[in-house]
Amino acid sequence: MNKIMSDKMIIALYTLPALMLILVLIYVPIVLTGYYGLMDWDGIGQMTFIGLENYRVLMTDSMFWRSAYHSLLLAVFSVLSLIIYLAVSVVLSANIRGADIFRKVYLIPMLLSSVAIAQLWMRIYHPSNGVMNRFLMSIGIDNPPLWLSDTNIVLFAIFVPILWQYAGFYIIIYYAALKNIPKELVEAAKIDGATPLQIAYKIKLPLISGIIKVTIVLAVIGSLKYFDLIYVMTDGGPSGASEVMASYMYKLAFRTNDFGYGSAIGFFLLVLILLVTYFIRKLTASKDDNVQY
């Protein structure tokens, strides 16, 4: 066995199928997208090479920057919500009664498909029959907000289910990390007279800081490329008030048949996410960082 694994040819061979899949399904499309982004192309007929014209247009496209701002807001909220998830996980990982059930409860939204979640929340937000407005009217608010059609609140209304959807995911990650902390450390701290808050803040958090950094990166990337709930619930509307970068890209490529420009946005999005990931790693890096991602 060792002999086989030391043969470079064999190693190359074993990794080849997976490598081919990744190449054909991920890297080739990325290169193609970059290539299409340099073209004036309606997705159907002839392509014309226009160099960086698409990117020049992108720089001055106010609708794109508006959607980029919305994506950024989502990223900020996603990262802030991590604090809540972390708090919940710390409580769950202490041996309290019913922790097991709560853990499952938090995970349930993750098991639903995005479209199901969208349908559910569209019912909740329905202007006249929705649970939310029914409740508000029953406590005496005559003109409850129009959650999904008021351009001032639609973005925030739609953030709620997006954050809710991923809560379980992050809680599970934190929970697993917290459970991995050696009991001896916590016990030693208790003997030294540390309060539960001190244990959480001074011992548990530093020990899982690597995981926290990973989740920050995941949350930011996930937010910047977010698409599904927005597409189903508002389609970026009304009047672009809930448009994000990915939904704007989709619209340009498939609705307005501007495939070249849509590809340029897609490629720009990729570069943007790579840059952001790099900077987050830089910012959160510490000397004894041993978590690789």
């Binding site: 202007p127 639609v154 009304p238």
Partner: peptide, 12 residues
């Protein structure tokens, strides 16, 4: 028109 028209789909 009904309330919240811009947030409602044709089906709704």
């Amino acid at each position: 028109f009904i309330r919240g028209l811009n947030g409602l789909s044709d089906q709704e």
